[in-house]
Design a protein around this nucleic acid. Structure first.
Length: 345
DNA sequence: TATACGTGGCG
DNA sequence: TCGCCAAGTAT
């Protein structure tokens, strides 16, 4: 009987998707694709990859870009630290490594935003180095194939799955092996309804034999969701509106939004929250529920009319038809699309 | 080690 | 509607 890696690679040759980052060995583009695909589906990331490659064809182009430009291209994809870290690392490669992308596992791992998974993916695919990837797909395939019940979000689990993945690795073709395993996870060994009748590992899969597929992988931690109540102040003097860059450590760091006031449950916005002698009046202008991984945001938008806009801190004033120049959270993009205030001319 | 970090699709 | 999931990393 053919061994594990032979089976998955034969399947991969026949069934892999035709993706723009396949069949290349430019470490920069492979790096970009891997970062985009962190916690992100191919369908969602594809357009972003194409945009990035077109706008920044080389790591040097990315290094020379403004952060706002990079974040603007990333707008709508989420997990914006990926873009900030990649930009930071590109500048580091350009300025401190002579523009040469690192060629060892440790060197790649040292880049900001690159962890064990991404370092293994880049070095195995671009350089044919024997490092096994362990991602969500690998956890799912291997936990079912071997019926490993150790929680994948535990230290012990990470250790066990890394060991198992390394034992199966084809040292002659680590890149193809890694991509084949992940592709099976993405196309066949699905979380809810695995297509075991199409799986190249069906003959030897423990979960298929015992019909235990849906019991794996095991996770121990549960996500708890908290509610947040954000009141956005859309300050306008009839022509311009105030935008503010988010510099704090929290969500949407580096993106722009309106000045906002956060309230507790049941608390309402009052005129005291606005306190401007130039205040003409304010009106409710819409309310959105925005679901995030760990929080449920209830956003209320207030159209605040003032005689003239006075800027404070690092606020900037924008013409109402120029919001597209700034990277914004998806929540605000949705609001702007639905609000009459930002209609172009 | 536990938590924060986005968005969109699916059953 | 809601919880889970999707090629993880930083702190």
């Amino acid at each position: 009987m053919a061994d594990f890696s032979t089976l998955i690679q034969a399947w991969f040759r026949q069934n892999q998707r035709n993706l723009p980052w396949r069949g290349i060995n430019d470490p920069y583009k492979i790096w970009l694709s891997e970062v985009i695909l962190q916690q992100t589906r191919v369908d969602q990331g594809m357009a972003y990859y194409l945009k990035f490659v077109e706008t920044f064809p080389t790591i040097k182009d990315l290094a020379n870009a403004d952060e706002d430009h990079v974040l603007n291209l990333w707008q709508g994809l989420g997990y914006y630290s990926r873009a900030r870290n990649m930009h930071f690392s590109a500048k580091m490669v350009a300025n401190e490594l002579g523009g040469v992308f690192p060629s060892t596992y440790k060197g790649v791992l040292s880049l900001k935003g690159v962890g064990e998974y991404t370092a293994a993916a880049i070095t195995s695919i671009a350089y044919n180095l024997p490092h096994a990837v362990v991602d969500g797909n690998v956890y799912r395939v291997l936990s079912r194939y071997l019926e490993i019940g150790t929680p994948i979000d535990s230290t012990q689990g990470k250790k066990e799955f890394s060991l198992a993945a390394a034992e199966f690795l084809d040292h002659n073709n680590p890149g193809d092996h890694n991509q084949a395993l992940m592709e099976i996870g993405a196309l066949v060994c699905l979380p809810k309804s695995p297509k075991c009748n199409k799986c190249p590992l069906a003959q030897s899969c423990a979960s298929l034999q015992n019909n235990s597929q849906l019991n794996f992988p095991v996770k121990s931690k549960k996500i708890k969701v908290v509610n947040r109540y954000l009141h956005y102040l859309v300050l306008t003097d009839g022509e311009n509106t105030v935008l503010k860059k988010r510099t704090g450590k929290g969500i949407w760091e580096g993106l722009y939004d309106f000045p906002l006031i956060e309230k507790k449950v049941g608390e309402e916005l009052t005129e005291n929250d606005l306190k401007s002698e130039d205040l003409v009046g304010f009106d409710f202008d819409g309310s959105f529920k925005h679901i995030l991984s760990h929080q449920r945001i209830l956003a209320t938008f207030w159209l605040v009319r003032v005689k003239r806009i006075k800027l404070v801190d690092n606020q900037i004033k924008i013409a109402i038809n120029q919001v597209e120049d700034y990277p914004l959270p998806q929540l605000l993009i949705r609001y702007i699309k639905e609000s009459r205030l930002f209609e172009a001319d």
